[in-house]
Computed example of a mutant assay.
Amino acid sequence: MTSPKRATSSFAWPSDDHIMYVYAAAVYSNNARKGGGVYDKMNEQEQHDCDNVQHILESYHYVKKQSFVDVMRQDRAQVFLDSGAFSAYTLGVELKVSEYCAYIKRNIDLIRKEDGVLIASVLDGIGDPLETYKNQQEMEARGVTPLPCFHAGEDERYLELYVRKYPYITLGGMVGSSNKQLQIWLDRVWDRYLVDGSGRPKLKVHGFGITSIPIMERYPWWSCDSSSWVQTAAFGAIMHPLYGNINISENNPAKHDLGEHVNTLSPQEKEFVCNMLLEQGYSYERLSTCYQSRFAYNLWAYGEMERNLSAKPEVFKDAVQELF
């Protein structure tokens, strides 16, 4: 069973039928698109599902290499561009605002736009909201208006400013936090700053690095992204859009635990899983031995999750507006 290609949204805001965009992060930089080495090792079904990934996020830190630019241009890419500042910071690499702006201007045709808004994030200052704000101002002075970013734990006066001034903002600094920790913080910022009295969003909000379905479902995000499709495949599992992660690789250590791996399910359960995969265009044998196949399956699953999430109401139901 193959996934049909879906039409691009008109990006009307607000919209009762908005598709919540789930961006697959680092598709080009993991060579899983036409022209990449991983893509070349996929079969026809797998390539089809990679070709039909509608929403891709890439980090400037990685795709600033001309080889990636060439592949994206050949593929007529329209990506959400993240600065990749956190990755660069952890590797001790300095990213310069001037070079980031020059890259955006040079490759403006590869960057997604929605209602005239450039979908490229600010070069954020890691652990320094003032530096992030200064970078926002400098980028605008250089002729590039990026999406501002507010990180968990920062002074909320910056968030207030971004909400007043911009139609589309991003929330970051959430990777590594538990769902319980995230919910406490997100409940606060959504309720206090991001929704009106009816729980409807005041503006478009993107969540960086969100992998939890409950967190995706709880808030009226306009978009979010995750690279978990890569990690899950690398650790020998696939991401089923309804049943969650399924351990399937022959090298996955869960193969020794009863009920934790396809091979340790009951015969009836294993038959059900294998038949389900065949209906989706995939074979157990290939998924269990080939990470390229797991890459493609997980990218297909992102599209299915996006479709499922888009059916949820576009309100924050638990919002309780403060009177004072």
Rank of each mutant, 00 (worst) to 15 (best):
M1K: 13
S3K: 04
S9T: 02
F11L: 07
F11M: 10
H18I: 11
V22C: 13
A24F: 02
A26F: 07
Y28S: 04
S29H: 04
N30R: 06
N31K: 11
N31G: 04
R33P: 06
R33I: 12
G35I: 04
G37C: 02
E44A: 15
E44S: 06
D49M: 12
I56R: 07
K65G: 07
V69S: 06
Q74F: 10
R76T: 01
R76K: 15
A77G: 08
V79M: 11
F80V: 07
G84H: 06
F86V: 00
S87M: 08
A88W: 10
K96R: 13
K96F: 05
V97D: 09
V97L: 01
V97S: 09
K105M: 03
K105C: 11
I108Q: 15
I108S: 14
I108R: 15
L110W: 02
E114C: 04
E114P: 03
D115F: 10
G116N: 05
G116P: 11
S121Q: 09
I126V: 13
G127S: 00
P129A: 10
P129C: 10
P129W: 07
E131H: 02
K134G: 07
N135V: 00
Q136K: 06
R142W: 12
T145G: 03
F150V: 04
H151T: 01
E156K: 10
R157P: 02
Y158L: 08
Y158F: 08
E160H: 05
E160T: 15
Y162A: 05
Y166C: 02
P167T: 08
I169E: 01
T170V: 12
M174S: 02
M174V: 09
S178H: 00
N179R: 03
Q181I: 03
W190R: 04
S198M: 10
G199W: 11
K204S: 13
V205I: 08
H206S: 02
T211S: 14
S212V: 11
P214Y: 09
Y219V: 07
Y219G: 02
P220E: 01
P220R: 01
W221R: 10
W221P: 00
C224K: 09
S227V: 09
W229S: 05
V230E: 03
A233E: 00
A233C: 02
G236D: 08
I238K: 01
I238V: 01
P241I: 04
Y243T: 10
G244C: 04
N252P: 11
D257N: 14
N263L: 14
N263G: 11
T264L: 11
S266Y: 07
F272I: 15
F272D: 15
S283P: 05
S283R: 10
E285G: 07
E285C: 10
T289R: 13
S293M: 09
L299F: 03
E306R: 11
N308Y: 14
A311G: 15
E314S: 15
A319M: 14
A319C: 11
